[in-house]
Amino acid sequence: MIGFKSKLLNATLAFTAAIPLATAGMFTSAGSAQAAALNGEIQFNGGFTAGPGSSQITFSQDALTFTPQPITPIAIGSTTGNFSAFNSGNIGNIISFSSKVADNPFIDFGSLTYPGFILPGTDTSSITDGLNTFTLTSSSYKLNQDGLNVGIGVALFGYFTSATGEISNGGGNLTFQVNNASVAGVNSILSSGGSISNLTFSGGTFATVPEPTTLLGLGIVGVGMVMSRRRKTVA
């Protein structure tokens, strides 16, 4: 009996000692992940390219296509979190509603000398390098009558990848409008296979990363499993 109590006490002390180490490790891991993963919010508008002009959308029943190409710049306005490192981005060529896919990465974030402006000689490498990106996994659109105009809202669902490879869940939206139109009229154009061009747009995205408490809970469960195996060994 004394031997059993001694083993039980040793196991208990070992478990107690392991908790601070595990929690410290989990908080360090969580802090590192949060620092590296993209998190926060971005608001943006279409940018401008010398020659082609402003970034625009062509809207059809099955897809959105973006011009100019190969780069459709966006100008980032307000940001939160570590998105503050960026002032511009390059948006992908197409969103396909029928197949729920897009040209990915859908947005490549970076910085330009002037937010969203590509002028002769502008270095665009940071918005075409495939780092700090938003990948679109699905999308849908909705038409709303807004006075004499039709507002179109496009929901975006996907995930962000940081320059160091960390993934964070996220989503966002694109908004634009057709002036002097009705929902019925726009639907008639789309259903007949037509499209509406020269539409300017704005939008926003947000990213979330795991909470440290979630990682901490997983760490304590892991310690418990280790100590359970240890008790079986010493019993």
Rank of each mutant, 00 (worst) to 15 (best):
K100D: 15
S32W: 08
A22V: 15
T122K: 04
A37Q: 01
L38G: 04
G46T: 06
Y114S: 12
G81D: 04
A18R: 09
G116F: 08
L21W: 03
A75R: 09
G130Q: 07
P120T: 04
T72E: 02
N90M: 02
A18W: 11
P115M: 06
T72A: 02
L38A: 02
Y114Q: 12
L64K: 13
D108A: 03
I42A: 07
Q56H: 12
I91L: 00
G81V: 03
G31A: 10
T128A: 14
F83I: 03
N104Y: 02
L119Y: 07
T65P: 02
A17E: 09
G121N: 06
S32G: 14
G77D: 14
I107S: 03
I76V: 14
F59P: 00
I95K: 03
A18L: 15
D129K: 01
A102Y: 06
F86K: 00
S111Q: 11
T65K: 03
I42W: 09
T49A: 01
S125K: 13
F117A: 09
I42Y: 08
T124N: 01
T28G: 15
S78W: 11
L64A: 11
F109T: 04
T23P: 02
G31C: 06
L119W: 03
L13Q: 06
D62W: 06
I74G: 05
Q61K: 15
L8W: 12
S126R: 09
A24I: 13
I71D: 00
A63R: 06
G116Q: 03
N45D: 13
F27I: 15
T113D: 08
S96N: 10
T122F: 04
G47S: 14
I127N: 03
T65Q: 03
M26R: 15
